[in-house]
Every structure is written in structure tokens, then in C-alpha cells.
């Protein structure tokens, strides 16, 4: 399951919703907004996403994860809009029978997602400047 959300991410609710009677392990990852990037102080940032394309590409990542690891379900929610320092930008939950594959798959999902999902981040700095990250 994947969602781009304009509302704050609620990790407690998302974790509660990850239920499967055969799953003895739930590994979750939270990506949060950090106060500095490459030596510059960040005030806030904005995420923008291509929602349909992101959902389709997440479905591909989900299929690859289920093929590669012994896990039963993958959930992801990513924020869009304006975020402040400390806000949760992305949440991932992986359910599996056992913890080993759950940890490994969670790492795989966040790495793939960061490379592949069409989601952009604009940082706003204390000096009034702003910029899109990795905008080659």
C-alpha cells in the first residue's frame, strides 16, 4: 500500500494498521526532516510528487521486494507539501514471519524508493536562499 499524503504522517496509526496473523515481525522506518544539509541550516522544506507515477513505481518496488525477500506486506506513506524540522517525511512498514527478512527488506525499500520515486524536495535556508535538492 502506498500513499502520498498532504496531512502529517501518523506512525502509531500506520503501525497499528500493519496486521497479519502470520507475521511475527514488523520493521518500520521513519525519515525525518533534518536541520542541516551540506553545511547549511534548513528552516523548512517542501516536497512535491507525481502521485500516479509514484504509486505505479512503488507497486513495482513492492513486487520486487516480495519476490526477493520472505516478507508478507510492505506499506509506505510519503509526505508532500510544507514540512518543518523533525516532521516525518516518509514512513515504511514491512511485515514478515521473522525479523531477518523484515530488516533487510525495509532497507531495500527505502533505498529503492529514494532512487526511483518521482518526489522532489525544496529546501529553504536561514539565509533566505532556497533550492531543489539534486537538481542537476
Amino acid at each position: 500500500m502506498f500513499e502520498l499524503s498532504e496531512l502529517p504522517i501518523d506512525p502509531i496509526r500506520l503501525a497499528k494498521e500493519c496486521r497479519n496473523d502470520g507475521a511475527g515481525a514488523l520493521v518500520t522506518f521513519e525519515g525525518r526532516v533534518r536541520i542541516s544539509n551540506q553545511g547549511r541550516t534548513v528552516i523548512r522544506l517542501e516536497y512535491e510528487g507525481a502521485s500516479e507515477l509514484a504509486a505505479n513505481e512503488f507497486a513495482n518496488i513492492e513486487d520486487e521486494t516480495l519476490d526477493k525477500y520472505d516478507v508478507v506486506a510492505v506499506t509506505c506513506q510519503h509526505r508532500v507539501g510544507v514540512l518543518e524540522i523533525g516532521d516525518v517525511a516518509v514512513w515504511i512498514g514491512v511485515l514478515a514471519a521473522h525479523r531477518g527478512p523484515a530488516f533487510e527488506a525495509c532497507r531495500f525499500v527505502i533505498d529503492e524508493l529514494k532512487e526511483r520515486l518521482p518526489i522532489w524536495k525544496k529546501e529553504f535556508y536561514t539565509d533566505g536562499d532556497s533550492g531543489w535538492i539534486n537538481s542537476a
Binding site: Y47, A50, E115, W120
Partner: peptide, 9 residues
């Protein structure tokens, strides 16, 4: 849709 470099790389 043209997809410029994304945030996570």
C-alpha cells in the same frame, strides 16, 4: 511527464 533528478539520490 519529464522527471528531473529526484530528492533521494
Amino acid at each position: 511527464a519529464f522527471i528531473p533528478p529526484v530528492a533521494g539520490g
